[in-house]
């Protein structure tokens, strides 16, 4: 029987290694997806077609607040991973929950930004610029939504099963995903909002 356990354990370890590599590759493919949307934005951002340009609609302080919230959430996610690795279940749980709340606030702010734009008649079908803006930022928001769902599932697992070894590995992938979305947002903040407001 010990033979069996050894074989299954070894299998599980190599599987985790594969998963980590696979997840990195997935992140790379997602980078290509975002690169495509960035390229489209770069080409179309001047085509305002009589509608507003970036500097007419961007509210920089608001977006800055969004950015800080997301950055903080990446920090709390880091804390959650460290605490989980230390086996400190309570702390891990708390920091993960904090990450969720921050991420959720970010998403709500984004939705309210989109909402007010649409109410003002500057929805995605207004011009090519707005189409590419909504799609690029919205795709990031969609990823954040997926991340939030994932966090919820993790919280539920922690609550129910404690810190299983397999969940620690999953948490490390989740953290990777979350930091990746942070990096993408930095690009969005710089290229879309900052450069758009300045020009």
């Amino acid at each position: 029987m010990s033979d069996l356990i050894r074989v299954v354990d070894a299998e599980q370890a190599t599987r985790n290694e594969r998963k980590a590599l696979g997840f990195w590759i997935y992140i790379m493919t997602d980078c290509v997806l975002f690169a495509t949307l960035f390229a489209t934005y770069a080409v179309l951002h001047g085509n305002v077609f009589g509608g507003p340009a970036g500097k007419d609609i961007f509210n920089l302080p608001f977006v800055l607040a969004e950015t800080l919230i997301l950055l903080t959430s990446s920090f709390t996610m880091g804390l959650a991973t460290i605490m989980a690795a230390k086996g400190n279940r309570h702390q891990a749980y708390t920091w993960l929950a904090a990450t969720f709340i921050l991420g959720f606030s970010f998403l709500m702010m984004e939705i309210s930004e989109f909402g007010s734009l649409i109410i003002d008649g500057n929805g995605p079908s207004r011009s090519a610029f707005l189409s590419s803006f909504f799609t690029l930022v919205g795709t990031h928001g969609l990823h954040i939504t997926v991340g939030l769902l994932w966090i919820l599932v993790m919280l539920w697992r922690f609550y129910k099963h404690g810190l299983k070894k397999q969940d620690l590995h999953r948490l490390s992938l989740l953290a990777l995903f979350w930091h990746f979305l942070d990096v993408i947002w930095i690009f969005i903040f710089t290229i879309v909002y900052l450069m758009g407001s300045l020009s």
Binding site: V43, L44, F49, P124, R126, A128, S131, S132, T135
Partner: peptide, 18 residues
């Protein structure tokens, strides 16, 4: 498909698409 479903302008002839 966003163009077709939500009337966005990425590749349309009007609306500044390309």
């Amino acid at each position: 498909s966003l163009g077709r479903l939500l009337g966005m302008h990425f590749f349309t002839a009007g609306g500044g698409g390309d």
